[in-house]
Protein backbone atom coordinates (compact mmCIF):
# COMPACT_ATOMS: atom_id res chain seq x y z
CA UNK A 1 0.00 0.00 0.00
CA UNK A 2 1.42 3.37 -0.98
CA UNK A 3 1.07 6.63 0.90
CA UNK A 4 -1.50 8.09 -1.52
CA UNK A 5 -3.77 5.15 -1.07
CA UNK A 6 -3.42 5.29 2.73
CA UNK A 7 -4.14 9.02 2.87
CA UNK A 8 -6.98 8.53 0.43
CA UNK A 9 -8.58 6.01 2.77
CA UNK A 10 -7.99 8.26 5.78
CA UNK A 11 -9.46 11.23 3.96
CA UNK A 12 -12.51 9.15 3.10
CA UNK A 13 -12.80 8.09 6.72
CA UNK A 14 -12.43 11.71 7.84
CA UNK A 15 -15.25 12.75 5.50
CA UNK A 16 -17.59 10.09 6.86
CA UNK A 17 -16.79 10.92 10.48
CA UNK A 18 -17.01 14.70 9.96
CA UNK A 19 -20.52 14.29 8.60
CA UNK A 20 -21.60 11.92 11.34
CA UNK A 21 -20.22 14.19 14.08
CA UNK A 22 -21.69 17.32 12.51
CA UNK A 23 -25.17 15.81 12.52
CA UNK A 24 -24.74 14.35 15.99
CA UNK A 25 -23.34 17.49 17.66
CA UNK A 26 -25.74 19.95 16.02
CA UNK A 27 -28.66 17.51 16.44
CA UNK A 28 -29.58 18.49 12.88
CA UNK A 29 -29.10 17.28 9.34
CA UNK A 30 -30.14 20.55 7.70
CA UNK A 31 -28.36 21.03 4.39
CA UNK A 32 -27.40 17.36 4.10
CA UNK A 33 -28.78 15.29 1.26
CA UNK A 34 -30.27 12.11 2.71
CA UNK A 35 -30.43 10.75 -0.82
CA UNK A 36 -26.66 10.99 -1.30
CA UNK A 37 -26.19 9.22 2.03
CA UNK A 38 -28.55 6.41 1.02
CA UNK A 39 -26.61 6.06 -2.23
CA UNK A 40 -23.34 5.80 -0.31
CA UNK A 41 -24.87 3.15 1.96
CA UNK A 42 -25.86 1.20 -1.18
CA UNK A 43 -22.36 1.71 -2.60
CA UNK A 44 -20.65 0.25 0.47
CA UNK A 45 -23.12 -2.59 0.82
CA UNK A 46 -22.83 -3.78 -2.77
CA UNK A 47 -19.06 -3.33 -2.93
CA UNK A 48 -18.13 -5.00 0.33
CA UNK A 49 -20.16 -8.18 -0.11
CA UNK A 50 -16.75 -9.83 -0.50
CA UNK A 51 -16.43 -9.48 3.27
CA UNK A 52 -18.48 -12.67 3.28
CA UNK A 53 -16.39 -14.52 0.71
CA UNK A 54 -12.75 -13.51 1.13
CA UNK A 55 -10.38 -12.16 3.74
CA UNK A 56 -7.70 -9.73 2.53
CA UNK A 57 -6.27 -8.11 5.65
CA UNK A 58 -7.30 -6.89 9.07
CA UNK A 59 -6.98 -3.30 7.78
CA UNK A 60 -9.18 -4.06 4.78
CA UNK A 61 -11.87 -5.82 6.81
CA UNK A 62 -12.02 -3.25 9.58
CA UNK A 63 -12.13 -0.26 7.23
CA UNK A 64 -14.92 -1.86 5.22
CA UNK A 65 -16.93 -2.52 8.36
CA UNK A 66 -16.37 1.01 9.62
CA UNK A 67 -17.46 2.52 6.29
CA UNK A 68 -20.59 0.38 6.18
CA UNK A 69 -21.44 0.99 9.83
CA UNK A 70 -20.95 4.75 9.63
CA UNK A 71 -22.93 5.09 6.42
CA UNK A 72 -25.92 3.27 7.92
CA UNK A 73 -25.61 5.30 11.11
CA UNK A 74 -25.70 8.50 9.02
CA UNK A 75 -28.81 7.35 7.14
CA UNK A 76 -30.42 6.45 10.46
CA UNK A 77 -29.69 9.88 11.94
CA UNK A 78 -31.11 11.65 8.89
CA UNK A 79 -34.23 9.59 8.32
CA UNK A 80 -35.09 8.55 11.88
CA UNK A 81 -33.45 10.30 14.82
CA UNK A 82 -33.25 13.83 13.39
CA UNK A 83 -35.86 13.43 10.71
CA UNK A 84 -37.60 16.65 11.80
CA UNK A 85 -34.55 18.64 10.70
CA UNK A 86 -34.22 16.92 7.32
CA UNK A 87 -34.70 19.35 4.48
CA UNK A 88 -36.59 17.01 2.15
CA UNK A 89 -38.02 19.77 -0.04
CA UNK A 90 -34.57 20.80 -1.18
CA UNK A 91 -33.36 17.22 -1.53
CA UNK A 92 -35.28 16.73 -4.74
CA UNK A 93 -32.74 15.05 -7.01
CA UNK A 94 -34.34 12.08 -8.78
CA UNK A 95 -32.08 9.21 -7.77
CA UNK A 96 -33.72 6.78 -10.20
CA UNK A 97 -32.02 8.79 -12.94
CA UNK A 98 -28.73 7.64 -11.43
CA UNK A 99 -29.55 4.12 -10.24
CA UNK A 100 -31.19 2.86 -13.44
CA UNK A 101 -28.48 3.89 -15.95
CA UNK A 102 -25.71 2.92 -13.53
CA UNK A 103 -27.32 -0.51 -13.04
CA UNK A 104 -27.63 -0.96 -16.80
CA UNK A 105 -24.01 0.07 -17.35
CA UNK A 106 -22.81 -2.34 -14.66
CA UNK A 107 -24.58 -5.22 -16.43
CA UNK A 108 -23.12 -4.19 -19.80
CA UNK A 109 -19.55 -3.22 -18.87
CA UNK A 110 -17.95 -5.38 -16.18
CA UNK A 111 -14.97 -7.68 -15.70
CA UNK A 112 -17.00 -10.83 -15.28
CA UNK A 113 -20.68 -11.58 -15.68
CA UNK A 114 -21.29 -12.86 -12.16
CA UNK A 115 -23.48 -11.48 -9.41
CA UNK A 116 -20.69 -10.31 -7.11
CA UNK A 117 -18.72 -8.75 -9.96
CA UNK A 118 -21.75 -6.92 -11.34
CA UNK A 119 -22.62 -5.60 -7.88
CA UNK A 120 -18.99 -4.51 -7.39
CA UNK A 121 -19.04 -2.73 -10.75
CA UNK A 122 -22.42 -1.19 -9.91
CA UNK A 123 -20.97 0.19 -6.67
CA UNK A 124 -17.98 1.70 -8.50
CA UNK A 125 -20.21 3.43 -11.05
CA UNK A 126 -22.72 4.51 -8.43
CA UNK A 127 -20.07 5.96 -6.14
CA UNK A 128 -18.82 8.18 -8.94
CA UNK A 129 -22.20 9.97 -9.08
CA UNK A 130 -23.55 9.45 -5.55
CA UNK A 131 -22.60 12.96 -4.46
CA UNK A 132 -24.79 14.58 -7.14
CA UNK A 133 -27.93 14.87 -4.94
CA UNK A 134 -25.79 16.70 -2.36
CA UNK A 135 -24.28 19.07 -4.93
CA UNK A 136 -27.73 19.57 -6.43
CA UNK A 137 -29.11 20.47 -3.01
CA UNK A 138 -26.37 23.06 -2.50
CA UNK A 139 -27.02 24.55 -5.92
CA UNK A 140 -30.72 24.76 -5.03
CA UNK A 141 -30.31 26.44 -1.66
CA UNK A 142 -27.32 28.44 -2.93
CA UNK A 143 -25.22 27.82 0.16
CA UNK A 144 -23.61 25.25 2.39
CA UNK A 145 -22.51 25.29 5.99
CA UNK A 146 -18.74 25.40 6.35
CA UNK A 147 -18.57 22.01 8.04
CA UNK A 148 -20.51 20.51 5.12
CA UNK A 149 -17.91 21.93 2.75
CA UNK A 150 -15.14 20.29 4.81
CA UNK A 151 -17.00 17.02 4.37
CA UNK A 152 -17.18 17.53 0.61
CA UNK A 153 -13.54 18.53 0.44
CA UNK A 154 -12.44 15.33 2.20
CA UNK A 155 -14.64 13.27 -0.14
CA UNK A 156 -13.08 14.92 -3.19
CA UNK A 157 -9.56 14.70 -1.78
CA UNK A 158 -10.04 10.99 -1.20
CA UNK A 159 -10.85 10.51 -4.87
CA UNK A 160 -8.00 12.67 -6.09
CA UNK A 161 -5.56 10.70 -3.89
CA UNK A 162 -6.88 7.44 -5.29
CA UNK A 163 -6.15 8.70 -8.80
CA UNK A 164 -2.54 9.35 -7.83
CA UNK A 165 -2.50 5.91 -6.18
CA UNK A 166 -3.53 4.33 -9.50
CA UNK A 167 -0.85 6.20 -11.43
CA UNK A 168 1.64 4.98 -8.82
CA UNK A 169 0.43 1.40 -9.04
CA UNK A 170 0.54 1.48 -12.81
CA UNK A 171 4.17 2.57 -12.83
CA UNK A 172 5.44 0.43 -9.99
CA UNK A 173 3.19 -2.63 -10.09
CA UNK A 174 1.94 -2.62 -13.66
CA UNK A 175 -1.56 -2.73 -12.21
CA UNK A 176 -4.53 -0.85 -13.52
CA UNK A 177 -8.28 -1.34 -13.47
CA UNK A 178 -10.02 0.50 -16.25
CA UNK A 179 -13.48 0.45 -14.64
CA UNK A 180 -12.22 1.95 -11.39
CA UNK A 181 -10.04 4.50 -13.17
CA UNK A 182 -12.72 5.85 -15.52
CA UNK A 183 -15.28 6.04 -12.72
CA UNK A 184 -12.68 7.62 -10.45
CA UNK A 185 -11.84 10.29 -13.02
CA UNK A 186 -15.54 11.08 -13.50
CA UNK A 187 -16.03 11.29 -9.75
CA UNK A 188 -13.05 13.59 -9.28
CA UNK A 189 -14.19 15.88 -12.09
CA UNK A 190 -17.55 16.33 -10.35
CA UNK A 191 -15.68 17.85 -7.41
CA UNK A 192 -13.57 20.29 -9.43
CA UNK A 193 -16.11 23.10 -9.41
CA UNK A 194 -16.56 22.61 -5.69
CA UNK A 195 -12.77 22.54 -5.07
CA UNK A 196 -12.54 25.92 -6.74
CA UNK A 197 -15.22 27.42 -4.48
CA UNK A 198 -13.68 25.77 -1.44
CA UNK A 199 -10.25 27.28 -2.07
CA UNK A 200 -11.47 30.72 -3.11
CA UNK A 201 -14.12 31.11 -0.40
CA UNK A 202 -14.10 28.65 2.49
CA UNK A 203 -10.33 28.67 3.06
CA UNK A 204 -10.48 32.45 3.19
CA UNK A 205 -12.99 32.27 6.00
CA UNK A 206 -16.10 32.95 3.98
CA UNK A 207 -19.23 30.85 3.89
CA UNK A 208 -19.82 28.95 0.71
CA UNK A 209 -22.65 30.70 -1.08
CA UNK A 210 -23.37 30.63 -4.76
CA UNK A 211 -24.18 33.74 -6.77
CA UNK A 212 -27.94 34.07 -7.22
Amino acid sequence: MNIFRLFGDLSHLAAIIILLLKIWKSRSCAGISGKSQILFAIVFTTRYLDLLTSFISLYNTSMKMIYIGCSYATVYLIYAKFRATYDGNHDSFRVEFLIVPVGGLAVLINHDFSLLEILWTFSIYLESVAILPQLFMISKTGEAETITTHYLFCQGLYRALYLINWIWRFYFEGFFDMIAIVAGVVQTILYCDFFYLYVTKVLKGKKLSLPA
Binding site: M1, R5, D9, S54, I56, S57, N60, M63, Y162
Partner: peptide, 10 residues
Protein backbone atom coordinates in the same frame (compact mmCIF):
# COMPACT_ATOMS: atom_id res chain seq x y z
CA UNK B 1 -3.60 -11.55 -9.82
CA UNK B 2 -5.43 -8.50 -11.02
CA UNK B 3 -8.73 -9.22 -9.33
CA UNK B 4 -7.13 -9.84 -5.94
CA UNK B 5 -5.09 -6.63 -6.21
CA UNK B 6 -8.20 -4.68 -7.13
CA UNK B 7 -10.21 -6.09 -4.24
CA UNK B 8 -7.54 -4.93 -1.85
CA UNK B 9 -8.67 -1.35 -2.46
CA UNK B 10 -11.58 0.21 -0.68
Amino acid sequence: NNQQTRKDEL
